[in-house]
């Protein structure tokens, strides 16, 4: 009886399970074994954890790790916060033309990343760029955004925030709309102004949504690749925008070091895994309302 009861749902998810197994699970396992070999131009032989030991002492890998952490921990709060602000504004009754703004803010999310990168490269152009022109209006000289090692990463963070906040905005909007009105009514009866009801009603009830958005954004940001690939000629200047995935790509597909590249992939996997666990712990303590 129970077998029959449980077999039907499994039947329904079987196609996607099968696809996941063949195209995700098996490659993940194979990649782990690849990371234990020196598979490269000359063939492959088992080397144990030597790739991982080499990674720990590879200055370029450490650089890419540092860059990726910088990107994630500055970019993630920025895009989550701006997504939240946009969602609250769009949810309030003060804003007109809501659909227009909602679509407009979400548009970058569905626009091809490479196309965005090319356009932003022009915006940042040190000679003819709109941003340079804007700064000149106030008689401020702007740096060479993508060409200066100090400014290249902030420039990429700004572009990524612009591109991704629409996604968190949409999730937050859904979260906001699922908060029952009665909580606000109760707060009003208790004499709370709109700021207090935001702090004591909206924010706590949005916690699961916030955790979800943070995790998804963090996972996405750790895999930074296309922005520096397109905008800073694969990680320049002076490797200031070299990300982990970019370094993985270089090793795997330019230098043919598949074993080493797989080891990089596994290190990234564990970093993301640990951060996701860490963030999920927040959800555990969620109070049921």
């Amino acid at each position: 009886m129970s077998i029959k009861r449980y077999s039907i749902p499994f039947l329904f998810i079987a196609p996607s399970l099968l696809l996941f197994f063949v195209f995700c699970f098996i490659p993940i396992i194979v990649a782990f074994f690849t990371s234990l070999t020196d598979w490269g131009l000359g063939g492959a032989s088992f080397v144990g954890f030597r790739n991982y030991v080499e990674l720990a002492g590879d200055p370029l890998f450490l650089r890419s790790l540092k860059n990726t952490l910088y990107f994630t921990f500055v970019g993630m709060p920025l895009s989550v916060l701006s997504g939240l602000v946009a969602a609250i504004l769009l949810n309030s009754s003060l804003v007109k033309l809501k659909t227009l703004f909602r679509t407009g803010f979400f548009l970058p999310v569905v626009t091809n990343l490479v196309a965005c990168g090319v356009v932003w490269r022009w915006l940042y152009n040190p000679q003819y760029g709109v941003i340079k022109w804007f700064f000149e209006l106030f008689k401020i000289s702007s740096p060479n955004w993508l060409g200066d090692p100090r400014w290249a990463m902030p420039s990429i963070i700004l572009m990524a925030t612009w591109r991704n906040f629409g996604y968190s905005m949409v999730i937050f909007l859904a979260g906001l709309q699922s908060i029952p009105r009665r909580f606000y009514e109760a707060a009003t009866v208790d004499g709370a102004d709109s700021f207090r009801s935001f702090i004591h009603v909206t924010l706590p009830l949005l916690k699961p949504t916030t955790v979800f958005v943070c995790i998804i954004t963090t996972i996405g940001y750790f895999q930074l690749f296309a922005e520096p690939y397109v905008m800073t000629n694969q990680g320049g200047p002076v490797n200031s925008t070299l990300s982990i995935v970019l370094y993985l790509y270089k090793n795997g597909f330019k230098f043919f070091r598949f074993g080493y590249a797989s080891a990089i992939a596994y290190v990234l996997f564990f970093i993301i895994f640990i951060f996701s666990l860490f963030q999920l712990r927040f959800i555990r303590h969620t109070v049921e309302y």
């Binding site: 131009l41 370029l60 320049g236 200047p237 002076v238 230098f255 043919f256 070091r257």
Partner: peptide
């Protein structure tokens, strides 16, 4: 076959020298 990797190393270090790093 290692040329591509050597080339990358040359570019990394030359760039660091040019940027006075």
């Amino acid at each position: 076959p290692e040329w591509e990797e050597i080339r990358d190393k040359m570019e990394v270090y030359l760039e660091e020298v040019i940027y006075k790093k």
